[in-house]
Amino acid sequence: MQDYLLLIIAAMFVNNIVLILFLGNCPLVGVTSSMESAFGMGAAVVFVTTLAGTACWIVQRFALEPLALEYLQTLVFILIIASLVQFVEIVLQKVAPPLYRTLGIFLPLITTNCMVFGAAILSIKRDYTFLQTLVFCLAAAVGFALVLVFMAGLRERMEVSGRIPAALQGVPITMITAGMMGLSFAGLLGMAH
């Protein structure tokens, strides 16, 4: 039990997937200009990463490894993720239209979100069991959503303050803020590795 708790803390904060592992930095810049889109993207990513991470794990263990096809990992994983995103989009549209309206526009963007792919590959690289993969993907994605929401809040404030120098407005100040945020996350290093 304690192992899983440590895994969650490590994936969510200490080795935060956005700020420390540099995965999914495009949405960090792209969708954090408003709280609403940051939240939508975050929720969509949590959903897809957990599904895709576990699906990729199953395919790796039960198809690629027995057939000695590990070198096709990249190709197979990206196809799984792309088709899964498409599948989730269709299902949501039919089953839960209100949810689809909030998450819909973010789903196609997720195919090329390196976070989903990165989490799937990291789970294999670190030799996680199925349950560990599930927990890791979920925690990492929640960490991603958390950073996105924090960043959106900070950016909204900065916009209102109107004190950002012209040259720093937009992406540059977002990057510097991300660095500061990463420092505070790294401060939890003593808790788990």
Binding site: F22, V171, P172, I173, I176, G179, G182
Partner: peptide
């Protein structure tokens, strides 16, 4: 360290602007 990368990149973008 990772945070340093973000900061240096932000400064670089500002300089480029």
């Amino acid at each position: 360290r990772p945070p340093g990368a973000f900061v240096i990149f932000g400064v670089l973008l500002a300089a480029m602007n």
